[in-house]
Amino acid sequence: MSEATSVETMRRIIRQALASMEEHADELGRLDAAAGDGDHGITMVRGMKAAVAVLDANAPDAGALLSRGALAFSDAAGGASGALYGMLFATAGRQLGAGPYATADVAAAMRAGCDVVMRLGKAQPGDKTLLDALEPFLVALDAAADRPLPVAWRTALPAAQAGTAATAGMVASCGRSATLGERSLGHRDPGAVSLTYLLEAVDKVIGEAESDR
Protein backbone atom coordinates (compact mmCIF):
# COMPACT_ATOMS: atom_id res chain seq x y z
CA MET A 1 0.00 0.00 0.00
CA SER A 2 1.45 3.39 -0.94
CA GLU A 3 1.74 6.12 1.67
CA ALA A 4 -0.89 8.29 -0.01
CA THR A 5 -3.26 5.32 -0.17
CA SER A 6 -2.76 4.41 3.47
CA VAL A 7 -3.34 8.00 4.64
CA GLU A 8 -6.51 8.17 2.56
CA THR A 9 -7.66 4.82 3.96
CA MET A 10 -7.14 6.10 7.50
CA ARG A 11 -9.19 9.21 6.68
CA ARG A 12 -12.01 7.03 5.43
CA ILE A 13 -11.80 4.84 8.54
CA ILE A 14 -12.11 7.83 10.88
CA ARG A 15 -15.02 9.26 8.89
CA GLN A 16 -16.71 5.86 8.89
CA ALA A 17 -16.16 5.62 12.65
CA LEU A 18 -17.97 8.95 13.13
CA ALA A 19 -20.85 7.77 10.96
CA SER A 20 -21.09 4.59 13.00
CA MET A 21 -21.12 6.45 16.32
CA GLU A 22 -23.83 8.80 15.03
CA GLU A 23 -25.89 5.84 13.88
CA HIS A 24 -25.60 4.10 17.25
CA ALA A 25 -25.51 7.09 19.61
CA ASP A 26 -28.98 6.48 21.06
CA GLU A 27 -28.30 2.80 21.68
CA LEU A 28 -24.98 3.59 23.41
CA GLY A 29 -26.72 6.19 25.56
CA ARG A 30 -29.43 3.73 26.62
CA LEU A 31 -26.86 1.07 27.53
CA ASP A 32 -24.88 3.61 29.55
CA ALA A 33 -27.96 4.84 31.40
CA ALA A 34 -28.57 1.33 32.75
CA ALA A 35 -25.70 1.70 35.19
CA GLY A 36 -24.04 5.01 34.42
CA ASP A 37 -24.89 8.50 33.30
CA GLY A 38 -26.24 7.85 29.81
CA ASP A 39 -23.85 10.02 27.85
CA HIS A 40 -21.64 7.44 26.14
CA GLY A 41 -23.24 7.95 22.72
CA ILE A 42 -23.05 11.74 22.98
CA THR A 43 -19.44 11.52 24.14
CA MET A 44 -18.33 9.21 21.33
CA VAL A 45 -19.97 11.40 18.68
CA ARG A 46 -18.44 14.55 20.14
CA GLY A 47 -15.00 12.93 20.18
CA MET A 48 -15.23 11.48 16.67
CA LYS A 49 -16.36 14.84 15.28
CA ALA A 50 -13.21 16.39 16.72
CA ALA A 51 -11.10 13.60 15.20
CA VAL A 52 -12.70 14.18 11.78
CA ALA A 53 -12.07 17.92 12.14
CA VAL A 54 -8.28 17.42 12.15
CA LEU A 55 -8.26 15.11 9.10
CA ASP A 56 -7.66 17.86 6.58
CA ALA A 57 -4.29 18.76 8.00
CA ASN A 58 -1.36 17.24 6.14
CA ALA A 59 -0.32 14.02 7.78
CA PRO A 60 3.00 12.33 6.99
CA ASP A 61 1.54 8.84 7.36
CA ALA A 62 -1.50 6.87 8.45
CA GLY A 63 -0.12 6.24 11.93
CA ALA A 64 0.46 9.94 12.58
CA LEU A 65 -3.05 10.71 11.36
CA LEU A 66 -4.51 8.13 13.74
CA SER A 67 -2.53 9.56 16.67
CA ARG A 68 -3.55 13.10 15.87
CA GLY A 69 -7.20 12.09 15.58
CA ALA A 70 -6.98 10.18 18.85
CA LEU A 71 -5.64 13.20 20.74
CA ALA A 72 -8.37 15.42 19.30
CA PHE A 73 -10.92 12.75 20.26
CA SER A 74 -9.55 12.56 23.79
CA ASP A 75 -9.69 16.29 24.38
CA ALA A 76 -13.19 16.75 23.00
CA ALA A 77 -14.75 13.65 24.52
CA GLY A 78 -13.36 13.97 28.04
CA GLY A 79 -14.37 11.44 30.67
CA ALA A 80 -12.97 7.94 30.99
CA SER A 81 -13.91 7.12 27.39
CA GLY A 82 -11.94 10.09 26.07
CA ALA A 83 -8.86 9.21 28.07
CA LEU A 84 -8.90 5.46 27.34
CA TYR A 85 -9.91 5.52 23.67
CA GLY A 86 -7.52 8.43 23.17
CA MET A 87 -4.59 6.49 24.63
CA LEU A 88 -5.57 3.28 22.81
CA PHE A 89 -5.48 4.86 19.37
CA ALA A 90 -2.73 7.42 20.03
CA THR A 91 -0.45 4.58 21.14
CA ALA A 92 -1.47 2.35 18.23
CA GLY A 93 -0.94 5.23 15.79
CA ARG A 94 2.51 6.03 17.15
CA GLN A 95 3.55 2.41 16.85
CA LEU A 96 2.05 2.04 13.34
CA GLY A 97 3.82 5.14 12.08
CA ALA A 98 4.64 4.98 8.38
CA GLY A 99 4.04 1.26 8.22
CA PRO A 100 4.36 -1.38 6.98
CA TYR A 101 0.71 -2.17 7.65
CA ALA A 102 0.81 -5.96 7.46
CA THR A 103 -1.53 -7.86 9.76
CA ALA A 104 1.19 -8.61 12.30
CA ASP A 105 2.23 -4.92 12.45
CA VAL A 106 -1.33 -3.71 12.95
CA ALA A 107 -1.96 -6.42 15.56
CA ALA A 108 1.19 -5.41 17.44
CA ALA A 109 0.22 -1.73 17.36
CA MET A 110 -3.27 -2.49 18.66
CA ARG A 111 -1.74 -4.70 21.36
CA ALA A 112 0.51 -1.85 22.48
CA GLY A 113 -2.56 0.38 22.75
CA CYS A 114 -4.44 -2.30 24.66
CA ASP A 115 -1.56 -2.61 27.16
CA VAL A 116 -1.69 1.12 27.86
CA VAL A 117 -5.46 0.97 28.38
CA MET A 118 -5.07 -1.89 30.86
CA ARG A 119 -2.36 -0.05 32.77
CA LEU A 120 -4.15 3.29 32.89
CA GLY A 121 -7.64 1.92 33.49
CA LYS A 122 -6.40 -0.73 35.94
CA ALA A 123 -8.83 -3.16 34.34
CA GLN A 124 -8.57 -6.74 33.12
CA PRO A 125 -10.71 -8.78 30.74
CA GLY A 126 -13.77 -9.92 32.70
CA ASP A 127 -14.25 -6.56 34.44
CA LYS A 128 -17.02 -5.61 31.99
CA THR A 129 -15.15 -2.98 30.00
CA LEU A 130 -14.11 -2.41 26.40
CA LEU A 131 -11.28 -4.89 27.06
CA ASP A 132 -13.82 -7.70 26.91
CA ALA A 133 -14.23 -6.92 23.21
CA LEU A 134 -10.66 -5.85 22.48
CA GLU A 135 -8.76 -8.71 24.08
CA PRO A 136 -10.52 -11.57 22.24
CA PHE A 137 -10.35 -9.55 19.03
CA LEU A 138 -6.58 -9.18 19.35
CA VAL A 139 -6.13 -12.86 20.13
CA ALA A 140 -8.10 -13.72 17.00
CA LEU A 141 -6.20 -11.16 14.93
CA ASP A 142 -2.90 -12.66 16.06
CA ALA A 143 -4.12 -16.12 15.13
CA ALA A 144 -4.81 -14.84 11.61
CA ALA A 145 -1.54 -12.89 11.34
CA ASP A 146 -0.41 -14.76 8.24
CA ARG A 147 -3.46 -13.63 6.26
CA PRO A 148 -3.95 -10.26 4.50
CA LEU A 149 -5.19 -7.54 6.87
CA PRO A 150 -8.75 -7.18 5.50
CA VAL A 151 -9.27 -10.94 5.71
CA ALA A 152 -7.70 -11.26 9.14
CA TRP A 153 -9.69 -8.31 10.51
CA ARG A 154 -12.97 -9.74 9.27
CA THR A 155 -12.03 -13.16 10.64
CA ALA A 156 -11.37 -11.64 14.08
CA LEU A 157 -14.56 -9.55 14.31
CA PRO A 158 -16.83 -12.33 15.63
CA ALA A 159 -14.52 -12.66 18.64
CA ALA A 160 -15.15 -9.01 19.54
CA GLN A 161 -18.86 -9.44 18.99
CA ALA A 162 -19.00 -12.54 21.17
CA GLY A 163 -16.90 -10.85 23.84
CA THR A 164 -19.28 -7.91 23.85
CA ALA A 165 -22.34 -10.13 24.12
CA ALA A 166 -20.74 -11.89 27.08
CA THR A 167 -20.48 -8.62 29.03
CA ALA A 168 -24.24 -8.79 29.64
CA GLY A 169 -23.54 -11.66 32.03
CA MET A 170 -20.78 -9.80 33.89
CA VAL A 171 -20.91 -7.64 37.00
CA ALA A 172 -18.94 -4.42 36.61
CA SER A 173 -15.97 -4.04 38.90
CA CYS A 174 -14.37 -0.99 37.31
CA GLY A 175 -15.54 2.47 36.41
CA ARG A 176 -18.66 4.29 37.38
CA SER A 177 -21.00 1.32 36.92
CA ALA A 178 -18.98 -0.65 39.48
CA THR A 179 -20.85 1.17 42.23
CA LEU A 180 -24.05 -0.41 41.05
CA GLY A 181 -22.54 -3.89 41.14
CA GLU A 182 -25.30 -6.38 40.52
CA ARG A 183 -27.49 -3.77 38.86
CA SER A 184 -25.16 -3.77 35.86
CA LEU A 185 -25.98 -7.45 35.27
CA GLY A 186 -28.07 -8.11 32.14
CA HIS A 187 -26.81 -5.11 30.16
CA ARG A 188 -23.93 -5.18 27.70
CA ASP A 189 -21.08 -2.85 28.55
CA PRO A 190 -21.42 0.33 26.46
CA GLY A 191 -17.62 0.60 26.01
CA ALA A 192 -17.38 -2.95 24.64
CA VAL A 193 -20.30 -2.19 22.31
CA SER A 194 -18.80 1.07 21.01
CA LEU A 195 -15.39 -0.55 20.51
CA THR A 196 -16.99 -3.32 18.47
CA TYR A 197 -18.77 -0.74 16.30
CA LEU A 198 -15.42 0.96 15.72
CA LEU A 199 -13.81 -2.34 14.73
CA GLU A 200 -16.73 -2.95 12.36
CA ALA A 201 -16.25 0.52 10.86
CA VAL A 202 -12.62 -0.36 10.09
CA ASP A 203 -13.78 -3.59 8.48
CA LYS A 204 -16.27 -1.75 6.33
CA VAL A 205 -13.54 0.52 4.92
CA ILE A 206 -10.67 -1.95 4.47
CA GLY A 207 -13.02 -4.73 3.40
CA GLU A 208 -14.50 -2.54 0.65
CA ALA A 209 -11.05 -1.42 -0.46
CA GLU A 210 -10.17 -5.09 -0.75
CA SER A 211 -13.23 -6.00 -2.84
CA ASP A 212 -12.55 -2.99 -5.13
CA ARG A 213 -9.34 -4.58 -6.31
Binding site: D37, D39, T43, R46, D75, A77, G78, G79, G82
Partner: peptide, 8 residues
Protein backbone atom coordinates in the same frame (compact mmCIF):
# COMPACT_ATOMS: atom_id res chain seq x y z
CA UNK B 1 -15.92 19.10 31.61
CA UNK B 2 -19.06 18.59 29.58
CA UNK B 3 -22.23 17.68 31.44
CA UNK B 4 -21.38 14.71 33.69
CA UNK B 5 -18.12 14.05 31.82
CA UNK B 6 -14.67 14.55 33.31
CA UNK B 7 -12.58 17.26 31.66
CA UNK B 8 -9.82 15.97 29.38
Amino acid sequence: GNVFAAPS
